[in-house]
Design a protein around this nucleic acid. Structure first.
Length: 325
DNA sequence: GTTCTAGAAC
DNA sequence: GTTCTAGAAC
């Protein structure tokens, strides 16, 4: 039987395969070429992002039918949240097999109901219906979602589920938050706690990665979501200058700053024109400030900063008896 | 000729 | 948010 990613993770989790073996770089069937899995990478959906040559198109997307969870996915329950978080190991249900957008209901925040801007809504309404490839964990108050177009190796979204926005709707963005509203203050406290827990969990699982927690000044998605994103930016889904600048310029606002502003009794008011200008900034490496002419150039450069375990396969590795070379 | 960007459509 | 693609850049 070929040693697939799913099987390796299953064996590792059932303790029948030493962690060291999983950590090794090995070659398997035509399905996968070089496979590098960190020792602690027990979340299959995220661990899959550490597969340097596995096409990301094999992962489920927002707008595509959700894949049924693999055996490995069904056995992953590592969250130990202190806020009654339920780690996901849900079966793929009718809802999750359909296009999530099909389940959206009319909203009152402007854009057409059921549009792409509402793609996060089904996660808020029925987090229990999604497989572990989509929902990391949830409680009555929050849901932690795996971004389906991750711009880094680890990219999650933390969302509040309280319907305390205008007219009893979900909060659309941080601009909805009122520092004088007790329910909103509670939401901010809970979000801060969950974000902290998720960030810590990811730091523990992926000690070679750095993380940032924050929001986009002008979010494209309608429902309030906080990004927990690793700082490698090694991802096939990172494609445009706008993607890059949205996470590496001041367009990305640290959650701590949002929290501090509200704690000072001020509402959040974004300068959208200034923010949009940030997205058009020239490409500059977030680690060493090296300028890049094009996105492909920048992405090549980012590989030089990536931790060894997640960097793309080196020319040397590619030359070692690759079955596909 | 190919690569890459950026704007329209969804 | 993504996809598609015209045309700019090389």
């Amino acid at each position: 039987m070929p040693l697939t990613l799913s099987r390796v993770l299953l064996l590792q989790q059932s303790r029948s395969l030493p962690v060291a073996v999983v950590f090794c770089v090995f070659r398997c069937s035509n399905e996968h070429r070089l496979l590098q899995v960190p020792a602690a990478a027990t979340s299959p959906a995220i661990a899959a992002r550490f597969t340097t040559t596995r096409p990301f198109s094999t992962m489920a997307r927002h707008t595509a039918p959700a894949a049924a969870p693999t055996a490995a996915a069904s056995s992953s329950s590592t969250s130990k949240s202190s806020t009654a978080t339920t780690a996901r190991a849900a079966p793929a249900t009718e809802v999750s097999r359909k296009n999530p957008l099909a389940a959206t209901k009319p909203t009152t925040t402007g854009a057409r109901a059921g549009s792409w801007a509402d793609a996060l809504l089904p996660y808020l309404e029925r987090p229990e219906t999604f497989p572990a490839t989509h929902v990391h964990s949830f409680s009555a108050d929050h849901v932690v979602v795996l971004d389906q177009f991750p711009k880094s190796k680890v990219h999650l979204l933390v969302m509040p589920r309280a319907r305390v926005g205008p007219r009893g709707k979900y909060l659309a963005s941080v601009e909805d938050l009122d520092p004088d509203n007790e329910a909103h203050v509670l939401v901010v406290e809970q979000l801060t706690e969950v974000c902290g827990e998720v960030e810590q969990e990811m730091r523990t699982k992926y000690p070679q990665l750095e993380f940032r927690v924050g929001i986009h000044t002008v979010p494209s998605m309608r429902h309030l979501h906080v990004h927990v994103i690793s700082q490698d930016f090694i991802s096939d889904r990172l494609k445009t200058k706008q993607h890059w600048n949205s996470f590496t310029s001041e367009f990305f606002v640290p959650w701590e700053r949002v929290k501090a502003t509200l704690a000072a009794g001020q509402r959040i008011k974004m300068d959208k024109a200034a923010a949009e200008a940030l997205l058009k900034r020239p490409l500059v490496c977030h680690k060493c400030s090296k300028a890049a002419r094009t996105m492909p150039d920048l992405k090549k450069h980012l590989e030089t900063h990536a931790p060894l375990a997640i960097a793309g396969s080196s020319p040397r590795e590619e030359n070692v008896d690759s079955p596909l070379a």
